[in-house]
Design a protein around this nucleic acid. Structure first.
Lengths: 117, 117
DNA sequence: TTGACATATATCCATATCAGTATATGATGT
DNA sequence: ACATCATATACTGATATGGATATATGTCAA
């Protein structure tokens, strides 16, 4: 098989730097496509296409205002990424804690055994 | 320019589904390359290479145990992703709050003006 | 309606990335 | 040292992706 077809899932969408920059810019406030074109060095079609990807994974919304479209970050759309991270780290930390407990118990037993004689 | 050269940054590393699955598996506990090969349907070289990417962005660590290498998630390596997300959403929410304040103030003024006559 | 502006879509190209296979490295046990 | 097992690296090929350009759609204003 060739490269994995992961187009347009949230992780992939955020994996691209241009799109991250777009998100960062939009986080500072609603902006039109033209605003984004000016602010980033990208051509208008590129910005539009990146916005489409971001729209499809539901992390930006847009409203039409006259002839321009004003885009903004839709924070709840980032939730899946957040929860994935949180769950992953939680699971890892839980294991650390258990290991810690285990080590403490081992240590306690060792001390007891040392004391016994 | 062709596709953006984002090889081996954290966001990209986590953007790949195979690597996310590897991380999820490792979060359940340390595992050898062979374990991962068995558990996921991937060929050994692929697993090794994905692990290399994950190692390079510092989200997994490995220790040598006899002839196998035991990999585990290194949670602190995920911090940059976490903070990016947190800062982004914080900024967005802050703007929401300000908008909220502004709307409240507008509403208050409107009420006052309505009362005045 | 027509012209101007703003954004979206379509098409083409270069290439980075992933999958597949073969081979190299490295460690263990005899 | 040699055979075996475990993992890493090298190389190849297919393709999805992002960038570039041209064109279509859509909106307003006169």
């Amino acid at each position: 098989m060739p490269r994995a077809a992961t187009t347009s899932n949230l992780f992939n969408a955020v994996g691209d730097e241009s799109r991250r920059i777009i998100l960062e810019t939009l986080a500072r406030g609603e902006a039109s496509v033209g605003d984004l074109v000016d602010e980033l060095g990208l051509a208008q079609p590129h910005v539009s296409r990146h916005l489409k990807v971001l729209r499809e994974v539901n992390v930006v919304r847009c409203r039409t205002a006259g002839r321009q479209r004003l885009y903004s970050v839709y924070a709840p759309g980032l939730a899946p990424l957040q929860s994935w991270l949180i769950e992953l780290t939680a699971q890892v930390n839980e294991r650390y804690d258990r290991l810690d407990d285990h080590l403490h118990e081992l240590l306690r037993n060792t001390i007891n055994e040392t004391r016994r004689p």
